[in-house]
C-alpha cells in the first residue's frame, strides 16, 4: 500500500478492482481511514468554498478577451473594443511617466556605481513633478480646502514649520500637497495651478546638510523647468512645464515670501 494509492483513493482515480483492496486496507487501519476521509472532506469543502465563483457574471473585459484579438480577426474587432480605454490610458500614462523618468534617469544610471548616489534636488523635484502633476483625480493627498491640516501635518512630518507660499497674486492657486520620500527622509510637495490648468509644484526638503546657501539655480530636466535654491537646511525647487521667464517670476515671489516669513 503506497501513499499514492491512498491519494488516488481520495480522488477516485484507482484502476478498477484496486479500490476494493484499498477499502479492505482502510477497514483494517482506522487511523489511515480517518486521515483519507479528512482529505475527502477537505476536497469537498474546497469545491464548495469556491463554487460561487462559477456563478458570478464574467466581467466584460474578460468576455471580450474570449474573442480573437485584432491580429487574428481584423474585420470584426476594433482595437478599442478589445482594450478597454482605461487600460490604454493607464498604458499611456505609464509610457509617459517612464519615458520622462527614463530620460531624467539616464544620466544617473550610466554606471552601476552611481546608481546608489543621491539624486540631486532639481532631479528629485522634477521626477516628483512629472509623477504627480498629470494626475487628474488625486494630484495631492490633502487638498487646499484643508490647508490648516495640510500645514500642520507636513510641518509635523518634516519636523519643522513649512507653509505653502501664497501665489494667487501671480495667478496660481494652491491645489494641496503631499508627503514624499526624499533621499533620507520625508519631503513635502505643494501643487498649484493657474486658470488654464497649468500645474506647478514646489518641492521642499529639509535634508540639506552642507549648510551652504545658494542663490537661484536653474535646471532643465526633460520637459520640466526647475528653479531651486538652498536656504539653511531647507532646499526648495519649483518645477513646471512653463517657460523659464515665467517660472523665474514665480520663483522670485516664492523666495521673497519664504525669506520674510
Amino acid at each position: 500500500m503506497t501513499e499514492d494509492d491512498l491519494q488516488a483513493w481520495v480522488d477516485d482515480a484507482l484502476p478498477a478492482g484496486r479500490r476494493g483492496e484499498i477499502d479492505d486496507y482502510l477497514a483494517a487501519h482506522p487511523e489511515e481511514a480517518e486521515r483519507v476521509r479528512a482529505y475527502q472532506a477537505q476536497k469537498q469543502a474546497l469545491k464548495a468554498m469556491f463554487a460561487p465563483v462559477l456563478d458570478e457574471p464574467v466581467p466584460q473585459r474578460l468576455q471580450t478577451l474570449a474573442k480573437p484579438p485584432v491580429a487574428v480577426d481584423p474585420q470584426k474587432r476594433p482595437i478599442l473594443a478589445r482594450w478597454s480605454l482605461q487600460r490604454i490610458a493607464a498604458g499611456l500614462l505609464i509610457a509617459m511617466v517612464s519615458g520622462v523618468a527614463g530620460w531624467l534617469g539616464h544620466a544617473q544610471y550610466q554606471s552601476a556605481d552611481r546608481v546608489a548616489q543621491m539624486m540631486p534636488l532639481p532631479r528629485q523635484a522634477a521626477v516628483a513633478h512629472v509623477v504627480f502633476s498629470p494626475d487628474v483625480r488625486r494630484p495631492v493627498e490633502v487638498s487646499a480646502d484643508q490647508e490648516d491640516q495640510l500645514v500642520a501635518w507636513l510641518s509635523k512630518r518634516l519636523g519643522t514649520p513649512v507653509r505653502p507660499p501664497k501665489l494667487a497674486a501671480l495667478g496660481y492657486e494652491l491645489i494641496g500637497g503631499r508627503l514624499l520620500p526624499g533621499n533620507s527622509g520625508p519631503v513635502a510637495q505643494f501643487m498649484y495651478h493657474d486658470a488654464s490648468g497649468q500645474r506647478l509644484t514646489l518641492y521642499v526638503t529639509t535634508e540639506n546638510t552642507t549648510n551652504r546657501d545658494t542663490g537661484f539655480r536653474f535646471a532643465q530636466e526633460g520637459p520640466v523647468n526647475v528653479f531651486y535654491w538652498i536656504d539653511g537646511k531647507f532646499g526648495y525647487a519649483l518645477s513646471a512645464g512653463i517657460d523659464k521667464g515665467e517660472l523665474a517670476r514665480v520663483a522670485t515671489a516664492v523666495y521673497d515670501q519664504l525669506e520674510h516669513k
Binding site: L46, M49, F50, V53, L54, E56, V58, L62, Q63, A66
Partner: peptide, 19 residues
Amino acid sequence: DNAALLAEIPRLRRYARAM
C-alpha cells in the same frame, strides 16, 4: 474556438481566485 474559450473563463477565474 471562442465559445470553448468563453466556457473556460468561469473555471479559470475560480482557480485563480483560490490560488
